[in-house]
Design a protein around this nucleic acid. Structure first.
Lengths: 117, 117
DNA sequence: AAGGTACTTAACTTGACAGCTAACTAACCA
DNA sequence: TGGTTAGTTAGCTGTCAAGTTAAGTACCTT
């Protein structure tokens, strides 16, 4: 299923660039052609083309062909993969405190009159 | 509030490296010293030290000092920043289809008997 | 005070990546 | 057929990041 060996590496690398994040954000609102995507930036078209290649390689976008246009499409599944990794670790982190709370409650219950002894 | 100019860039860059992601995952389970973090890797200690610096610079970890140990602590808020960016764009992406659905329902409602005409 | 433990800093090599211009391909248009 | 539009590929440059070893700092132990 993986398009390249370390997809998660590639996905986070892709998202690390502000131009690419802006492109992803633009595509979240709807498909767009290369020139449309390039318009907001003061960057050469080949530069944008390279960024799109990076996004495509990690599966964040897919491209089709209509006449001389190559509309880009955001693949939310790829976004979900990165989302999943962060959420998972966020969850594990949060669990520590739940366990600590439970532990403290347990202590309190097994020695409820400690303060008065 | 930002620790460095483009924190989000730095955070995604930090998460792009598999060694650093493994360190983050380890720290999600609880604080650890540098040597504890280094143990699972076949990498020199200075290498690990550099990775920790990257994680610290973007705010993903904080470090204190106890005797000669420097325990590392995961800062979930930094994780939340990256999480927030992806979630937001994921949400915008999903909304398109909600709107499309609504639009299609609207069309169907304004011309409910088209098929029978 | 001497030695060990836990790191960090310095200095270097290597490789990847962002950006550019110039040149190419592919489809449409007149 | 010749030009225009849309985009990619090639080739270059400068910067930055990952890894290394060797040396330094800081604290504890005896």
């Amino acid at each position: 299923m993986a398009m390249i060996p370390d997809r998660l590496d590639a996905t986070f690398t892709a998202l690390a660039d502000p131009t690419r994040r802006a492109i992803v954000a633009r595509l979240a609102a709807g498909d767009a052609t290369v020139n449309e995507l390039a318009a907001p930036f003061s960057m050469s078209l080949p530069g944008i083309s390279k960024h799109l290649k990076v996004l495509e390689r990690c599966g964040l976008i897919s491209r089709t062909r209509h006449a001389q246009f190559r509309p880009c499409h955001l693949r939310a599944e790829a976004l979900d993969e990165a989302l999943g990794w962060i959420e998972e670790n966020r969850r594990i982190w949060a669990e520590r405190f739940d366990k600590l709370d439970a532990h403290l409650r347990g202590l309190q219950q097994s020695a409820p009159d400690r303060r008065r002894s």
